[in-house]
Design a protein around this nucleic acid. Structure first.
Lengths: 341, 341
DNA sequence: GGATCGGCGTAAATCGTTTCACAGGCGCCG
DNA sequence: CGGCGCCTGTGAAACGATTTACGCCGATCC
């Protein structure tokens, strides 16, 4: 593990010159340059990143704190981020908070010490880390949140209109003739969960019924729980459609209902959220509310870089995307029942 | 952005004392300690990670270079890594090479400069970065590879026996009466792809037929291509079963076959690889070859930490796990055809 | 009462780079 | 021929923390 000093000695120049060869090769005479490069090669010298960053004060890496890597949604957002970061040759490093507030806190602490070029994060919950995030910003580390909690925060944010998403799902189910709809999601402390609920509830009339199935988390396992709960209701009390907090839940519900002999969509229709790629590949292709996943990541990153660029007089912005309905078999019209007679 | 110096000044002590409060609070007298802590709080002081690491020479973060985050397989491996890392309070940072050798090279370069505590990686291909990986190791940064290319490398590795996996799939399909089997995977430069093929080919007799469908990559899209190719064959030339390079491919094949009116498993049986959670949730629940995903990550991390621990006289090891067959509907016995008459 | 010993702190060296001010040498111009 | 400027390269001062050697002071022990 040789340092710049040994390279300098071997090449018979000063450390300053070696540094110049590395960073501004043009200012050093060709033969000196070659001598230095030879020395570098011979020693297998590699710059020490810590020292560089200490000196520079800022790094060339972008930190993404993902809420849940197990959800393909975030992977797609991530690829949007990577696309945007590539242009500036930035390195993207990903951390996984796994929806654990404590882990998230630890990660942010770590990042505060590490001082990346910027932080992209979907916070575990609204209140939690705002103070810490603001501190990052005040330290000169730009933060962009993808999340609706955005509303409250200072700083930039990219989000999708979840209330609208809920409305789209609700209207679609009403159009299909459903009058008793379940909403399977949670925890309600998560803004998105609440917004989607509000959107759905908003379009239901007096005569329509809404059953809320509260889940501790949004994943396939809790989805199965919800599915069981629904299956065990008597046919009369059972909703004819379920709006799921995301596609993972929808997949779980679908599995469980099918396993218990209920037909989708004939007995119970299902609509998910996010439109992850696996939704289309499900046993019964899932209708879903699509979010512009890659674009979210891309836009967030562009905003982050803009903010990180000292020169540009940056204005904090909130960008709100519109979700859209994707119809598939899981909410297909129930042909025999609704139109036959 | 205050430094330790300002804290020292505010508290009326030397920087050494502040450092002691931070790292060995016990050696400093209670009231001095409190004075310092008050100063820290007042200034909102946060340690500078670069400076620390520069001085310390080593960092407390573990780098994972994932081959393809879009494949849930790696996410599961990752959670094994995180579990093992948590015990030592290490931070796990994830990088995504996306199967791109050039990106991988850039990432490794970056890591060489950054000097993490250790690197866990599934290399894009066998030959590519071995030199660079060896260099990391020789610099004192332990590397554990999860991958079969392991065989060749010095250093530690964790892998699953892919030849055996191929054999398991092959025997299962033979048991089910299939005599013409397709293998849909690629690229063959990837060791796993080749090994699984070899395992399959090894159990086929003279009279059985193997059709290889070469894919440029293993994902849902290429799976669909393979599906189309199969569907377009005349019934006589068409294999009755497909062994897919991984579950993503299997999902793609399944979608395409179904869309084109072929029944699974009656017309064509499908078996995947990895047994990701989505395999069970597919339109036709997929049979698959299961790998102990979390355990791979866990074991690899434990080995890495062992190697990173200077004190323990570390011996490089290769651990080879056994995959196992998971039977589901996609390879169910073709009841009417095989047993009816 | 003087020597010794702990307990607390301090000052300075160090990690490896980058950068800035400046010095030497050479050629060119007047 | 003297001065000026350019081209290269040097040396030293940061960056912010950790660590080591050491000094001071009061208490303890003989």
């Amino acid at each position: 593990m040789s340092s710049i000093k040994e390279v300098a000695r071997l090449a018979g120049v000063s450390v300053g010159t070696v540094s110049n060869v590395l960073n501004r090769p043009d200012v050093v005479a060709p033969d000196t340059r070659q001598r230095v490069q030879a020395a570098i090669a011979q020693l297998g010298y590699v710059r020490n990143g810590s020292a560089r960053q200490l000196r520079a004060g800022r790094s060339r890496t972008l930190a993404v704190v993902a809420l849940d890597l197990a959800n393909p949604f975030f992977i797609d957002v991530l690829s949007g981020v990577e696309g945007a970061a590539q242009r500036d040759k930035l390195t993207v490093m990903v951390f996984n908070s796994s929806k654990d507030a404590e882990r998230e806190a630890r990660l942010l602490e770590e990042l505060e010490e590490q001082r990346p070029l910027g932080v992209l994060i979907t916070p575990v919950n609204d209140r939690g880390q705002r103070e810490r995030l603001d501190r990052l910003v005040s330290r000169g580390i730009p933060v962009v949140v993808f999340d609706n909690s955005a509303r409250l925060s200072h700083g930039c944010a990219v989000a999708v209109d979840d209330v609208l998403g809920g409305r789209l799902a609700g209207r679609h189910l009403l159009d299909r003739g459903h009058r008793h709809i379940a909403y399977a999601a949670g925890p309600f402390s998560v803004r998105q969960v609440e917004d989607r609920h509000d959107g759905l509830a908003g379009v239901l009339g007096e005569r329509e019924r809404l059953t809320v199935i509260r889940l501790p988390d949004l994943n396939v396992a809790t989805g199965r729980t919800a599915g069981r709960e629904i299956a065990e209701l008597s046919p009369g009390a059972r909703p004819t459609a379920v709006f799921c907090g995301n596609d993972l839940v929808a997949l779980g519900v679908l599995q469980e209902l099918t396993q218990r002999g209920l037909r989708v969509p004939d007995d119970v229709a299902i609509i998910g959220y996010d439109d992850i790629d696996f939704a289309a590949a499900a046993a019964v292709p899932l209708s879903s509310i699509r979010q512009p996943r890659e674009q979210i990541g891309h836009t967030a990153t562009v905003m982050l870089l803009e903010e990180a660029d000292q020169t540009s007089g940056h204005q904090h912005r909130h960008v709100l995307f519109q979700p859209e309905l994707v119809e598939r078999t899981s909410t297909a019209a129930r042909a025999p029942v609704t139109s036959a007679l």
